[in-house]
Design a protein around this nucleic acid. Structure first.
Lengths: 238, 238
DNA sequence: GCCGCAGTTTGATCTGGATCAACGATTCGC
DNA sequence: GCGAATCGTTGATCCAGATCAAACTGCGGC
């Protein structure tokens, strides 16, 4: 089978890789994948691991293979805002800048495919399609950020919580395009609060109300099942 | 003078253009500028003009030559959030998408250099540096959006208003890098409210308080002079 | 099994900003 | 220059969500 011959030139690790399809490596030819593959390292980190420190020059970039990463901004007085969540197969890092004022932390166990700044820059020079992929992801993240600005600026507490559940349901499973009916809330209540601009008490109360209304169920405070997706969308303000 | 000979190949309109320096046209060679120049049209529109309708396929793109553009997101029930302001020499439009769910409206008199989707796509194919510029602007807008998420999610009403004034002061004059001491608030109170996730009354009260404290002066509700920049930064939460 | 701890839920109270209301200021058309 | 519409300011009251306080749940260590 010809396809096998062709595939055999793709590094074994990349063959089953999430990041090759939706992610940025999809822009690379087999020979380029081989070249990049020699400069990558896989890492698995536990929840809570600091992946990128805000304001500190980052050592490199990564593709997320599985898990959820929180993007965090901090104020001098300690208040913090989670400005985004990233899922497989997202690219992680800020291209063309020494450092960023956004930090990144593993929210769950996270598997990464890491590579250095210079490795990325070298690949970008060789494969313009790679920059195009990065550009597209930046635009997608920009759309997401603006969506969330709407949530933060205009929605009520319960609308925010419902929006958050829909966001998770749409992203936890990188394979399906739609919503997952059952999924784990990877974040603690404190993280959800920082993402929504609320307090943990208000988050908890809003979740309890959704449960009481029969829109969702929650097991052991972590596993959510959506019973009524229409009601949840309505509760989210659309 | 050799420089004149070289400059003479740059279209006359582009020679003094804002967008050529900070903007995306800086990525183009004189011959490419000439080529694009043939496909552009300058437009000057009054405040309130709808430039891009959310969800409707856009006819094209533009560079902002002067003025301020509001980026607006709308909810089905009519609530709206301004998700960003754009100033000269920003690029206006959403590359690689038929339409966007973000609308754009002139906040002041705006001068634009417009061109079609196909003209841009053609130039991008010929000049990879152009996509690089677009990419960089997208990343800058992403940083701005996340900054504003912090403002929307964590800051108090008066911190939001102070942050807004600093944002304007930093951008109204595209030439200087720092803050302008005196500038016009181009937006109406209702727009400021939609940008900050507040009501017009709260915006007005916060501005009055800053005036009473001697941090700023306001003439005819539009022209602001910053008397104490440190106090204003402190009031903004940094 | 029991303890200790971190995280979550629920209740009572308080408050920043929304809402409701009235009144100034500015701009525009004629 | 005058009236009218729009926009902005200020005051009084109300309420969603914050804060303060207490109990509950699940989990790991021993």
């Amino acid at each position: 089978m010809r396809l096998d011959i062709h595939n055999s030139t793709v590094p074994a690790l990349c063959q089953a890789c999430e990041a090759r399809h939706g992610g940025i490596c999809g822009a690379l030819e087999p020979t380029q994948l081989q070249q990049l593959g020699r400069q990558t390292a896989r890492r698995e980190v536990p929840p809570g691991t600091q992946l990128i420190a805000a304001g500190v020059p980052a050592d490199g970039y990564a593709n997320i293979l599985s898990g959820v990463v929180k993007l965090i901004k901090l104020m001098p007085d300690g208040r913090q805002q989670i400005v985004g969540l990233q899922f497989a197969p997202d690219f992680l890092g800020r291209p063309f800048a020494e450092s960023s004022d956004v930090g990144a932390e593993a929210a769950s166990t996270v598997r990464l495919c890491t590579f250095s700044r210079s490795a990325l820059e070298q690949m970008v020079r060789q494969a313009p399609a790679l920059e195009h992929r990065l550009h597209r992801q930046a635009l997608r993240e920009l759309d997401d950020a603006r969506d969330w600005m709407m949530t933060l600026g205009q929605k009520s507490a319960s609308e925010k919580v419902a929006s958050f559940l829909l966001l998770l349901a749409a992203h936890v499973d990188p394979l399906t395009g739609g919503y997952s009916a059952t999924f784990d809330i990877v974040l603690r209540r404190a993280d959800i609060a920082d993402f929504l601009g609320l307090t943990i008490e208000t988050v908890s109360r809003s979740l309890s109300r959704l449960r009481r209304d029969g829109t969702i169920t929650i097991e052991r405070s972590r596993t959510v099942t959506i019973l009524d997706i229409d009601a949840l969308e309505a509760a989210a303000g659309r």
